[in-house]
């Protein structure tokens, strides 16, 4: 039985930082199976988590000076909530892992403690039927587990409350920016060539700055300002920060010297690009629904498309007229 430490090392911290930057993110995992924290006996509780190393680290780091069994499921390096949503943190995997780890022989009780966010993948009544283990969904955040233990294994309202604080949003930004790097690089190269051919290299560079600003506005600025931007629609929030960037860019790049067509093109396309990226950020939030995103896409995608096409027409018109 592997016994594990509750103190995170410098390498664990480094691993977290690398993963937050998207380095080796899809391959950051620990072996699945049963682990011992402290010196658990057959009466001590069993916690269940995913084999994404960041999830595993987070859970073990809050269990200092406790005797607990930790059952790590094979989720292929995906965190609890995403794995539950995508079917790897599942009833089937839990039942299988209980069997493979001989849990019925290791503990005398028949109770498992799962994170609340595992519930989209696990049917508690099915696990009970197939293995005899009853499931308690304990807390959303790992850091509330000690309080849960000290509260006679009862979940308080606070432990069930989903949050999306400024800090929680900030840590998501680097990986989102890096994931967009490839399409952004291709677009930027194409824009530079086209704008340089039409208006000269100076305009090529300006177009690149404008586009990069729009990407940052959509991926970083709007998500950070999320609760303070008006409206419910993510596309609209991204449109607003994109509009703000268009105005800033107009002032920075001596917009008064542009011809009217270029001005129109900038104010049409920059907010559209920003709006698209903010709409895509719905996939990172803990509160947006699939149906809501579908509705937004049906309304916003045609508007974004038309804005970009009009922008291109304006640029061409500015060149030809």
């Amino acid at each position: 039985m592997p016994q594990i430490d509750t103190k995170l090392s410098f390498y664990d911290f480094l691993g977290t930082c690398k993963t937050r930057l998207g380095i080796g993110r899809m391959n950051y995992m620990v072996p699945s199976g049963l682990y011992a924290i402290g010196a658990p006996t057959k009466d001590d509780p069993v916690l269940v988590t995913a084999n994404y190393k960041m999830s595993y680290d987070k859970v073990r780091s809050v269990l200092t000076a406790r005797n607990v069994w930790l059952l790590v499921l094979e989720t292929y390096g995906i965190n609890v909530w995403c794995a539950a949503g995508k079917g790897t943190f599942s009833t089937q995997e839990l039942v299988r892992r209980i069997g493979l780890s001989n849990l019925t022989k290791v503990v005398a009780h028949r109770r498992l403690i799962l994170p609340i966010l595992a519930a989209p993948g696990v049917a508690a009544h099915e696990v009970k039927r197939q293995t005899g283990f009853s499931i308690s969904y304990a807390t959303i955040r790992a850091e509330d587990i000690p309080k849960y233990f000290d509260n006679n294994m009862l979940t308080t309202a606070k432990m069930k409350e989903q949050t999306f604080t400024f800090r929680e949003r900030t840590v998501l930004i680097p990986v989102e920016l890096l994931l967009s790097l490839k399409p952004t690089a291709i677009t930027v190269a194409a824009l530079f060539i086209i704008a340089a051919l039409l208006q000269g290299p100076r305009y090529g560079l300006m177009t690149v700055y404008a586009y990069l600003g729009a990407v940052v506005s959509g991926i970083a600025i709007a998500p950070l300002l999320l609760p303070w931007l008006p409206g419910r629609s993510f596309a609209f929030k991204g449109f607003l920060t994109g509009l703000a960037w268009s105005a800033t860019f107009y002032l920075l790049a001596d917009g008064r010297e542009w011809n009217i067509f270029i001005t129109f093109a900038a104010f049409l396309t920059i907010p559209a690009v920003s709006a698209f990226y903010t709409l895509n950020f719905t996939g990172c939030t803990p509160f947006t629904s699939r149906s809501g995103v579908k509705k937004e896409m049906r309304l916003a995608m045609p508007v974004m498309g038309i804005s970009v096409i009009l922008g291109v027409i304006f640029v061409l018109a500015g060149k030809l007229l």
Binding site: G85, K86, A119, P120, G121, V122, A123, A124, H125, F276, L279, N280, F281, T282, G283, C284, T288, S289, R290, S291, G292, V293, M297
Partner: peptide, 18 residues
């Protein structure tokens, strides 16, 4: 998924634009 009497329906799935 956790309703033992299948009294709840919801169309769940991936919710980002990409």
């Amino acid at each position: 998924i956790n309703c033992p009497s299948t009294a709840i329906f919801v169309d769940s799935g991936v919710g980002c634009a990409t």
